[in-house]
């Protein structure tokens, strides 16, 4: 069970009143999350207004040394209203999440670099990332990507065909 439930503090994409709320606990440096990224894009496109997508950070730092930094960068971009652009850019440039790599992405997104550089050092943003991680642990996330559908954990296959099939099944009238 998801703790805490999805709220306005979360980063959401899609229709607020969607039938399906799909939440991912993810790590920007995790190869499986990188694999899931284009699948989720396709699923979002397919399901349109029937889906609200939510992302929470779940960086495993000892395995992925750049993961926390990347998560903080996404939160810093959010302060300039470019969360999802940074989210996408990080997954599309998973091969280089060094600080230079991240600054390049920030620049290409047209962020105010002075503000961004200062924000990525803010302890509040690190705390937000850690809070996300703790909520994931308490919700039973055992690795990334960790999915929840309407607050229930989803452990089944998340490759495109089976995942879409499962989600579409939730839309059918009972």
């Amino acid at each position: 069970m998801l703790k805490p439930p999805v709220s306005e503090k979360d980063h959401e994409q899609g229709a607020k009143d969607a039938t399906i709320v799909l939440l991912e606990y993810g790590d920007y440096q995790c190869p499986h999350c990188g694999h899931a990224y284009p699948i989720l894009k396709k699923i979002q496109k397919q399901l349109g207004d029937d889906l609200l997508f939510v992302f929470r950070n779940f960086p495993i730092e000892e395995s992925h040394p750049d993961a926390v930094k990347a998560a903080v960068a996404s939160e810093a971009a959010a302060l300039q209203n470019k969360y999802w652009q940074m989210h996408d850019a990080l997954f599309e440039h998973q091969y280089d999440l060094s600080i230079d790599g991240i600054l390049k992405l920030a620049k290409s997104l047209g962020l105010d670099l002075r503000k961004f550089t200062s924000d990525i050092q803010q302890s509040e943003l690190f705390q937000k990332v850690e809070n996300d991680f703790e909520s994931g642990v308490r919700s039973g996330v055992n690795g990334t990507p960790g999915f929840f559908i309407n607050a229930q954990p989803y452990y089944e296959d998340w490759e495109y065909d089976p995942f879409l099939h499962h989600l579409k099944g939730l839309l059918r009238p009972k």
Partner: peptide, 13 residues
């Protein structure tokens, strides 16, 4: 290894 890596990350909790 996933389980132990997860526990490694949750040690502080």
């Amino acid at each position: 290894s996933d389980q132990m890596s997860l526990y490694n990350a949750t040690l502080k909790f």
